[in-house]
Amino acid sequence: MSEEEQEMITKVEAPVYLKYNFTAGSAPTRFLAQIKKGVLAGQRCPKCLAVYIPTRGSCGRCGVPTVEEVELSDKATVQSFTIVSIPIPNNPIEPPFIIANVVPDGANVSFIHLMSECVNEEVHIGQRVQAVWKPEDEWGYSMDNIRYFKPLDEPDVPIELIGKLTVTGEEG
């Protein structure tokens, strides 16, 4: 009995795997076709003029389709970030690393990506960053064409202007 208790089962592996077959809709397909060419393409709402990336094909605020495509800069501003210290299963990146929401110049919403070539403790909201791309021959239909964003030697963007810069990085 004591021997049995020593090898008592106390936990079980109980993973849940959800298998999807993801088909990109028309707006994501346009976005992915552009990212394959190394271009960050947003879409502008005809009503409120907000520029979205990645594109969903409609404006969530106005409820109207977005058709006009807008080429955005690969320079961006950190809107928020987190330092990941705990390893994520099946994620090859070793912690600590930084996940940030960055708003590319010319867009009004952020997308999530990695930051690197930075001092983790010095990353901050409003920081200017730029995409570091993979070599062109490795580009596919993927956000991974951008390896990560690295800090730029540019003045911080005041919080109230984050997400409001023009494609040339000026106050919109």
């Binding site: 089962i9 993801f22 099946n90």
Partner: peptide, 15 residues
């Protein structure tokens, strides 16, 4: 564009 995607929650449960 079509891609297989697997979301895994690798739980270990206490019995």
């Amino acid at each position: 564009l079509n891609q297989a995607f697997e979301l895994g929650y690798t739980y270990t449960r206490s019995t």
